[in-house]
Design a protein around this nucleic acid. Sequence first.
DNA 1: ATCTTTATTGACTGATCAGTCAATCCGAAC
DNA 2: GTTCGGATTGACTGATCAGTCAATAAAGAT
Lengths: 194, 194
Amino acid sequence: MNKFDKPEKILATALKLFVEYGFHGTPTSKIASEAGVSNGTLFHYFKTKDELVVALYTSLKSELSHFLIAKISETEVIKEKFRKLFTCSVEWAVENRDAFYFLQQFHFSPHRGLVSTEEIQQHSEIHLTLLQDARRAKVLKPLPPELIASLFLQQINGLYQYLTTHAEPVEKQQKWINDVFELTWTMISNPEAQ
Amino acid sequence: MNKFDKPEKILATALKLFVEYGFHGTPTSKIASEAGVSNGTLFHYFKTKDELVVALYTSLKSELSHFLIAKISETEVIKEKFRKLFTCSVEWAVENRDAFYFLQQFHFSPHRGLVSTEEIQQHSEIHLTLLQDARRAKVLKPLPPELIASLFLQQINGLYQYLTTHAEPVEKQQKWINDVFELTWTMISNPEAQ
DNA sequence: ATCTTTATTGACTGATCAGTCAATCCGAAC
DNA sequence: GTTCGGATTGACTGATCAGTCAATAAAGAT
């Protein structure tokens, strides 16, 4: 194995094990051995176990973030940007179940406090700017932006939950994703304007 | 302290500590000492730490469940039942932040597998029967019931998230709760029938 | 070729902690 | 007042595991 791959391999292995056994249930020794490196190497790249957990979180967050930014910049109309954001988020979540699950797991763990607020906000920058654009264009209901953001994100979550627990053919999945997006859009958009 | 209070006191203390430090970050010894009992007493009432975690989960779940059932049985019209279910869930969540947070934390932890599927379903019985009633009355959109349930639950979640991170006067909170319920209802209900 | 830095190893340690247990305590029953 | 079963205690243990370290190897640098 190329040395440059090792930290990546460690992160990938940690993800798999954390999702299966939790942070506590996964000893660093097991991560190291399953990743095919020695105990010491793991601590060479990540000073502590906590640092490894946080590194995994930021790595996945920015992966998702870049993926979404790339997809969204292709479109122009605001509603279509929202649609892209929605569908791509769900698709990424379903195709990277472990990663998406881990992000939730992390969110509801004390490790969350180890990530600075700025870093967290930097990753939801897309959502915020898109929301501001929509606000300026007056296409949104008169609700607090943060509330709209929260509802929007939880719709993605709800869909992820459903799709990962009910096996369905891909076309059906696509249909639900589009249907739920339309419902969500009706929910948050202002019928008066636009 | 009355001996009958001890298991309850242990559960309450565990809740507080689990939310603050996580399952792993909370030694049983700390739970015992903060609850004002000895190490041995804790293990007298709960054979293992895992059993304590699961006991806390089922205890909170059934507390919420009974609370909701009591509130809902007061009303008759289906939409009003949904409204009650929604508003009461959110209010309970906001007034029992730690408890609601813990339920999520538990949900995204390996402990989840320790609770039998039947037990989990038993606790969401209200949601399921209400959903079946609504289905029979044909007031819902033609989507899979589980998908509707998931979206409904995540709306509660999104609102909880917003309300717990943005301090607002109680009247405002009430307004958002009602507004979001109406939005949710429009989202899941069939405008044709009713 | 020599020197310096960085990567890698795995045996080791010190601390932590879940769970045990023998001993006491307490209250209820009769 | 004696008996008996559960409640309570806290010191103790065996196992686990995060993180160290001294030694070795490999990779660059000049």
